[in-house]
Amino acid sequence: MDKSTLQRLPPLKRTWWLKHRFFKLYMVREATVLPLVFFILCLLAGMISLLQGPDSWQGWVAFMGAPIVLLLNLLALIASLFHAATFFVLFPRVMPLRIAGRSLPDQAIVAGQWAGVLVVALLFLWLFGRA
């Protein structure tokens, strides 16, 4: 439904989404981008400090270790995993895959995407796990 159609319907109260578990979950998923934006702003600050020099970079690493910053970024990590969990189950519904005439089970497509997350994590371990 496009927004011009919605505007002709009686307006919803701002609290409409509190009335059902499904809508609350939807709003939580929408809110996962808030800690993500915080992390990205941290990353941009890190890039600025990297351009400024070694002292500035050390200062940024110390800033990232401040309890409140660490806590918000842990929230961003949880949010990314929650987003992934809700996002991966959509793939087989939006684009069911067929191989040699047989449709791939939904669980296989979801597992394949989690394998992707693992591969990226292993790539980071290879990059940063050794000095």
């Binding site: 981008v33 660490l70 990590l77 990314s80 996002f87 991966f88 990226v120 994590a121 940063f128």
Partner: peptide, 24 residues
Amino acid sequence: FAVIMPAVILFIAVLLPLGLLPAE
């Protein structure tokens, strides 16, 4: 967000500031 960000956040915003990565 789903595939790369978990690893990016884990390594850069959690393991790095906690000193859990090799020094260099």
